[in-house]
Simulated assay, not measured.
Amino acid sequence: MHRLFASVRKKGRLLRSLKLTFSHTGSLLLLLLVSGVFSCREDVDKSQLETYEGPIRTSHQMVLLHSDSALVRTKLMADKQLEFRNGDNEFPEGILIHFFEKDGTLSSTIRADRGYYDRKNNLYRGEGDVQVHNILKGQKLSSEELFWDRARKKIYTEKFVTVEEPDRVIKGTGMEADEGFNDYKFKKVTGIIDNVL
């Protein structure tokens, strides 16, 4: 009987020893597998990685109101707005800006096929078919590019411009005006056509 117990104890120690061996072998095998995965990885040249420059946020049917002394002075609308990490914005489907008088009357509008906002310079730029309409004076401006400087409350361009007034049409290159398109001046006038009607 004593031999039987000794034999069972011996087998028990052997089983415990085997369990420990399998346990250590499993850990060792896992460690070898993990180190093998990482050692096979090629080093990446970080200079070859490109920084993502695309938009970080997209908005649809966007409306932005600017107020002065609790009165809405401008209303900016766009079907699509792309916002970038540096704070710049792009309006790939066009932009429409309404300007209001102090009494709330809509005085003028700017419409462009594409729009951009430069946050650093607080400057909007319209491209494509750009139209400015002074509703109160019946004046219209057409150009292929126009800038709106919010801080200076000015609109300007270096491109070719056509201004239609009720009694004449003026064509020229380069123009600056107040943001409401009330007073403007050309850098170079290329033609004036009086309306005979």
Rank of each mutant, 00 (worst) to 15 (best):
residue 58 T to V: 15
residue 72 V to S: 03
residue 74 T to E: 11
residue 111 R to N: 05
residue 14 L to R: 09
residue 20 L to S: 10
residue 67 S to K: 11
residue 69 S to G: 05
residue 61 Q to P: 00
residue 101 E to S: 13
residue 103 D to K: 07
residue 13 R to T: 07
residue 48 Q to W: 03
residue 3 R to P: 00
residue 43 D to R: 09
residue 28 L to T: 12
residue 35 S to M: 12
residue 107 S to M: 03
residue 63 V to K: 13
residue 26 G to F: 15
residue 55 P to G: 06
residue 107 S to K: 06
residue 94 G to C: 01
residue 48 Q to F: 08
residue 86 N to V: 07
residue 103 D to F: 01
residue 107 S to C: 05
residue 110 I to F: 02
residue 106 L to S: 03
residue 53 E to F: 01
residue 106 L to M: 10
residue 12 G to D: 06
residue 113 D to Q: 05
residue 83 E to M: 12
residue 102 K to Y: 06
residue 98 H to G: 01
residue 12 G to N: 08
residue 54 G to V: 07
residue 51 T to K: 14
residue 40 C to H: 13
residue 55 P to Q: 11
residue 58 T to W: 07
residue 82 L to P: 02
residue 20 L to D: 08
residue 10 K to P: 00
residue 69 S to F: 08
residue 75 K to F: 01
residue 32 L to N: 04
residue 109 T to Q: 11
residue 79 D to L: 09
residue 68 D to C: 00
residue 18 L to F: 10
residue 88 D to F: 02
residue 6 A to Q: 08
residue 88 D to L: 01
residue 72 V to W: 02
residue 99 F to A: 07
residue 40 C to N: 12
residue 3 R to G: 11
residue 57 R to A: 15
residue 27 S to R: 10
residue 93 E to T: 06
residue 73 R to A: 02
residue 62 M to I: 07
residue 12 G to C: 06
residue 2 H to M: 11
residue 15 L to Q: 03
residue 22 F to G: 11
residue 118 D to Y: 14
residue 104 G to Q: 04
residue 78 A to K: 00
residue 86 N to K: 09
residue 59 S to V: 07
residue 113 D to E: 09
residue 7 S to Q: 11
residue 19 K to M: 12
residue 88 D to T: 04
residue 14 L to P: 00
residue 93 E to P: 00
residue 15 L to A: 14
residue 7 S to H: 05
residue 15 L to H: 01
residue 11 K to T: 05
residue 114 R to E: 14
residue 10 K to V: 05
residue 110 I to G: 06
residue 50 E to G: 10
residue 69 S to I: 03
residue 3 R to W: 07
residue 21 T to L: 15
residue 36 G to R: 01
residue 12 G to T: 10
residue 60 H to D: 08
residue 72 V to R: 08
residue 46 K to F: 12
residue 72 V to C: 05
residue 115 G to H: 03
residue 42 E to N: 13
residue 79 D to S: 15
residue 60 H to A: 05
residue 93 E to F: 01
residue 22 F to V: 14
residue 97 I to N: 04
residue 32 L to G: 12
residue 17 S to P: 00
residue 95 I to P: 01
residue 56 I to W: 04
residue 65 L to H: 10
residue 20 L to I: 14
residue 111 R to K: 09
residue 40 C to G: 09
residue 89 N to G: 01
residue 37 V to E: 11
residue 69 S to L: 10
residue 43 D to W: 02
residue 33 L to E: 06
residue 70 A to Q: 13
residue 27 S to F: 15
residue 55 P to E: 11
residue 49 L to P: 07
residue 18 L to W: 05
residue 33 L to F: 13
residue 75 K to G: 03
residue 32 L to P: 00
residue 35 S to C: 12
residue 41 R to I: 09
residue 8 V to D: 00
residue 21 T to G: 11
residue 96 L to C: 09
residue 30 L to A: 15
residue 6 A to V: 09
residue 76 L to M: 10
residue 45 D to W: 05
residue 19 K to Y: 05
residue 55 P to T: 03
residue 62 M to Y: 04
residue 82 L to H: 07
residue 39 S to C: 03
residue 82 L to A: 03
residue 58 T to K: 12
residue 85 R to K: 15
residue 102 K to L: 11
residue 71 L to K: 15
